[in-house]
């Protein structure tokens, strides 16, 4: 790639979503969702339960097929891809962090095997190197190297979540989907995880789409925010602008309903 092409490539959105719509029979899952996500950006999606944020994330990550609209990743039409190509993307360039680490980890496989799986899936065939990378990534998410052969079932909730993140990031993905990654964790563990995720986003230049109902989490983590209600995006913008100067009545209600500590 020439320098010019590189510059052009970095000056376009990593993910381009247009008119994304998914219904469940007569019910709206999400409707007409349009946004661009740029390299290195964290996009928060907030809304109450049933607002369509999880449906949207599932459509983006390829777990659900939208009825209408388009998704372009790095210029490639995601919905036109074959399943092989899409799943290949899902274990190389993309990552998905589940709310419950049990959904994103293999509980019967050691921590090292969990982290190494994505490497082996893309053809790594040297045990020593795979193990070395697994240990390095565990260190990065602050799990001691001597736990490499322990199963995740022996880990605390916070450690499991960090292991899930390590498992996802080991192949250096560019786009990470996160579904309530701090839900169900103690607040002290939450803070640690938020700090870790901020550092990873900054150091690796990750683009992230994070779904949460926790406005404090998005304020600290997301550059931009989308507010969803009844399947529609009612407002989007800079995170602090949307939270401090909300324009839509629903956002105003949401922001004013947060309990202060």
């Amino acid at each position: 790639m020439t320098l010019m092409e590189t510059m052009v490539a970095t000056d376009r959105p990593l993910l381009k979503v247009e008119g994304l719509t998914k219904g469940y029979g007569p019910r709206i899952g999400c409707a007409g969702v349009t946004f661009d996500l740029w390299p290195g950006e964290v996009l928060g999606i907030v809304g109450e339960s049933g607002s369509g944020k999880s449906t949207l994330l599932s459509c983006l990550a390829g777990h659900l097929r939208p009825d209408l609209g388009s998704i372009h990743y790095d210029g490639r039409d995601v919905l036109a891809m074959g399943e092989t190509e899409r799943r290949c993307l899902g274990r190389t360039d993309w990552a998905y962090v589940h709310q419950n680490p049990r959904d994103g980890l293999r509980m019967g496989v050691s921590a090292g095997g969990n982290v190494g799986e994505r490497l082996m899936a893309i053809g790594a065939r040297h045990y020593g190197e795979i193990r070395g990378k697994a240990v390095a990534w565990m260190d990065r998410v602050e799990i001691a190297a001597d736990r490499v052969d322990d199963r995740p079932s022996a880990f605390s909730g916070g450690m499991q979540q960090r292991l899930q993140i390590a498992r996802n990031l080991v192949t250096s993905p560019r786009l990470v989907f996160m579904d309530e990654p701090t839900g169900g964790l103690d607040v002290s563990v939450q803070a640690r995880l938020l700090d870790l995720m901020r550092g990873l986003v900054r150091d690796l230049g990750l683009s992230v789409v994070i779904v949460t109902h926790d406005l404090a989490v998005v304020r600290l983590l997301a550059h931009r925010l989308m507010v969803m209600k009844s399947g529609h995006v009612v407002e989007q913008g800079l995170t602090d602008q949307v939270l401090d100067d909300p324009q839509h009545s629903y956002t105003q209600l949401l922001v004013s309903s947060v309990l202060q500590v």
């Binding site: 913008g237 800079l238 602090d240 602008q241 401090d244 100067d245 324009q247």
Partner: peptide, 8 residues
Amino acid sequence: RMVYGNYL
């Protein structure tokens, strides 16, 4: 805050 983009 407007200069900073915090308020629209």
